[in-house]
């Protein structure tokens, strides 16, 4: 009803201190005689208090500014240079906890399940169990892997040595997400399913380090302004971090 709606709009504005003197006096007169108006005002005030308590600034603390621009600010309105790249980045984050020291945006920020996340998870769940056909190019073809996948993702392919973590490079495969290439370097281990280190072009990917876990599969993802990197495998968070540390020191 329009009358009820109008009254509620006025009550909300009164609760927010947005009415001028005359309008405020009119509301106060109504409050003096209407229990319903008092009840509604109480609800609006309580709602505002609850919201303030539920979203304190401290929950979003952390982070730092990007470096001062050398010239013009990055042109164009696009946050993500490629729609799929952003979707992939988001999709990797089942529920993510930032942890990386030195990350540009290290505070906990998370994303929920998404279509692309499901794709990444499905890809890894599928390929990591294909023990006989884990890779398309074997580890012995390292030079071919670099020449093959480098141009696909637009950067030199570094093949990290993760033997210190008990991971053996098995080779690589090309994964397509919405028709776009992702280089997946596969590693095997004696005590579990394979682990993948993935590289994809993502020119506007955030630099924050994010970690997620769902159904035992850990995912860590970070960007460097041109690419997004992902380490995925069944592992507890601390082991995933160890793998990420090894990768980061070598790329």
């Amino acid at each position: 009803m329009a009358g009820t709606d109008d009254r509620d709009v006025r009550l909300v504005a009164y609760a927010d201190g947005e009415l001028d003197e005359d309008a405020a006096r009119a509301v106060e007169a109504e409050l003096a005689t209407s229990a319903e108006a008092r009840r509604l005002l109480g609800i609006h005030r309580e709602t505002a208090s609850l919201l303030k308590a539920a979203f304190p600034e401290s929950r979003y603390a952390g982070g730092s500014l990007p470096p001062a621009p050398a010239g013009r600010a990055r042109p164009g309105p696009h946050l993500l240079a490629r729609p799929w790249a952003g979707a992939v980045a988001a999709s990797l984050l089942l529920g993510c906890i930032g942890y990386g020291a030195g990350s540009l945006w290290p505070a906990p920020i998370a994303a929920g399940p998404s279509r692309m996340l499901a794709e990444i998870a499905e890809y890894h769940a599928l390929y990591s169990r294909e023990t006989r056909h884990l890779v398309e190019a074997d580890a012995s073809e390292a030079e071919h892997i670099r020449a093959w996948l480098g141009p696909k993702v637009g950067r030199a392919i570094a093949i990290p040595d993760l033997s210190a973590a008990g991971l053996t490079f098995a080779g690589a495969r090309l994964v397509a997400l919405e028709g776009q290439p992702v280089a997946a370097l596969m590693y095997t281990r004696p005590d579990g399913l394979p682990v993948a280190f993935c590289i994809l072009s993502a020119p506007a990917a955030g630099r924050g380090m994010l970690q997620a876990e769902r159904e035992g599969v850990g995912v860590a993802s970070w960007g460097d302004g041109t690419h997004r990197y992902v380490v995925v495998g069944e592992a507890p968070p601390e082991r995933l971090r160890h793998w990420v540390g090894l990768v980061q020191r070598q790329i």
Binding site: P66, G86, C96, W105, A110, A204, G206, R207
Partner: peptide
């Protein structure tokens, strides 16, 4: 979305 929020903030700051 946390990811979009971070990138939005970063882009805004830039």
């Amino acid at each position: 979305s946390g990811t979009d929020a971070d990138e939005l903030v970063q882009t805004t700051c830039e």
